[in-house]
Design a protein around this nucleic acid. Structure first.
Lengths: 194, 194
DNA sequence: TATTTGACTATTATAGTTTTTTGGTCAGAT
DNA sequence: ATCTGACCAAAAAACTATAATAGTCAAATA
C-alpha cells in the first residue's frame, strides 16, 4: 500500500510533459522516468497513451468546472455572478494548454479519444447556463424569450472566441475587448425581447 | 488589341483552380493551359503566383464589400439594415473559399502576401460599422457609450465565429443560431448603457 | 496478490537521398 | 505589346534506411 498513489504521480508527470511538449512530442518513457518508474507501470494503470492524455485533460477541465461552480454558488449579486462566470471561464481556459491542443487538433487529425471529456464539459456548461439564465429570469434580472436557444447562442459565442484567444494567442491583446464583450452579452440578456 | 482582357481571363481561370484545389495544389501551368495560353504569359500580367492569388482574393472580398455597401445604402428601416448587414456578411463570406484558405493558413505558415487585402477588408468593415453605429445613435436607434470599442467588440465577434462557420463547416448547422446571435447583437446595441 | 521491471516487438516517425514537379526567367517569335 | 516554350534553380514528392516509440508480457519484487 503506497504512501502516495502512483496513479496520481503518473498523471502529474504526464501533465508536466503534455503541457510542455504536447501529446505527440511526449513519450511514455519520459513520463515514467520522471517519476523513477519503468514505462510498463503506466500500462498497469492506463490502457494507452490516449487514455492517459484524456485523464490529464479531464483534470484540467474539472478544475475549471470547480472554479465556475464556486462562482455560481457564491452570494454575490446576480449580475456580478453572471459577468464573473464569463470572465473566469475565458481566463481559466486560457491556461489550459492541453485543452488548446485538442482545439487545434480539430483542424487536422481530430483527437477523437477526448470527445467524451469535451462533451462532458459542454454538457456541464449548458446545464449551468440554463440554470443561471432561468434563475435570472425568474428573479427579474433577465428577459429571455427562448431559453434554450439563448443558451446555445451564448455557448456558440464562447466556443468561437476560443480560436483567436487560445490558438492565436490573442488573449492579452483582446483582454479589454473581452470585458466589453461580456458586458455586451449581459446587456443583451437583460434586454432581450420579441 | 484583344477583344477580352487576357488579365481577366487569367484571374477567372485562377479563381476556378484556386477555389477547387487551393493555393498550393494549383499550378501556374494548369491555370494557363485552361485558357489555351503558355504559362509565361501569366508572368507578363502578374509578378508571381502569390500576387495572382491576392488578386483572386481581392475580387472575392470586393464582391462582399459591394453587396454590403448596397445594403447599407438601401432605404430599409435602420434595424433591418443592421440585421441584414450581419447576416449577409456571414452568408457571403461562407462561400468565399479562398478567404477561408487564408484563415486556415493563420494556424500554419501564414499567407503574409495577402495581409494587405485582408487588412483592407477589415478597414472597410470598421469604417462601415462606425458610420452605421454613429448614425444609429444619432437617430436614437442605438445607445452606445464607447463607439470605438463597441465597433471593436463587434468586429472581434464577427471574425471569431468565422472559425467554426467556415473552417469547421458549421455554417448550415449554426444557421438558426446565427440568426439568434445577430438578434442578440442588435439587442445589446440598442440597449447598451453604463 | 498487487505492483513493478525491462527486454522485446510491431508500428510509426524521422532523417537522408533521389526523382519529379513547379515557379519563375528570358531570348526570340508574332 | 503580347505571347511562346525551352530552360533553370528550387521546392515538393516519392522512396529508402534508420531510429524512436507505444504497447506487451514473463518474470521479479514486495
Amino acid at each position: 500500500m503506497p504512501e502516495i498513489d502512483v496513479k496520481d504521480l503518473i498523471v502529474d508527470s504526464a501533465t508536466k510533459f503534455f503541457s510542455k511538449y504536447g501529446f505527440h512530442k511526449t513519450t511514455m518513457d519520459e513520463i515514467a522516468k520522471n517519476i523513477h518508474k519503468a514505462k510498463g507501470v503506466i500500462y498497469y494503470y492506463f490502457r494507452s497513451k490516449e487514455e492517459l492524455f484524456r485523464e490529464v485533460l479531464k483534470k484540467e477541465l474539472d478544475n475549471v468546472k470547480t472554479e465556475l461552480s464556486k462562482i455560481i454558488s457564491s452570494n454575490e449579486d446576480y449580475m456580478t455572478i453572471i459577468k464573473q462566470y464569463f470572465l473566469t471561464r475565458l481566463k481559466l481556459l486560457s491556461t489550459a494548454v492541453n485543452y488548446h491542443e485538442t482545439l487545434k487538433a480539430d483542424f487536422f487529425e481530430k483527437y477523437n479519444f477526448v470527445k467524451d471529456v469535451r462533451d462532458d464539459f459542454a454538457a456541464y456548461e449548458y446545464k449551468q447556463l440554463l440554470w443561471l439564465f432561468t434563475k435570472g429570469e425568474k428573479d427579474g434580472h433577465l428577459t429571455i424569450n427562448n431559453m434554450k436557444s439563448t443558451v446555445n447562442v451564448v455557448m456558440m459565442l464562447l466556443s468561437s472566441i476560443e480560436f483567436p484567444l487560445y490558438l492565436q494567442n490573442k488573449y492579452s491583446e483582446y483582454e479589454s475587448t473581452i470585458d466589453e464583450l461580456v458586458t455586451m452579452i449581459t446587456v443583451s440578456l437583460r434586454g432581450m425581447q420579441k
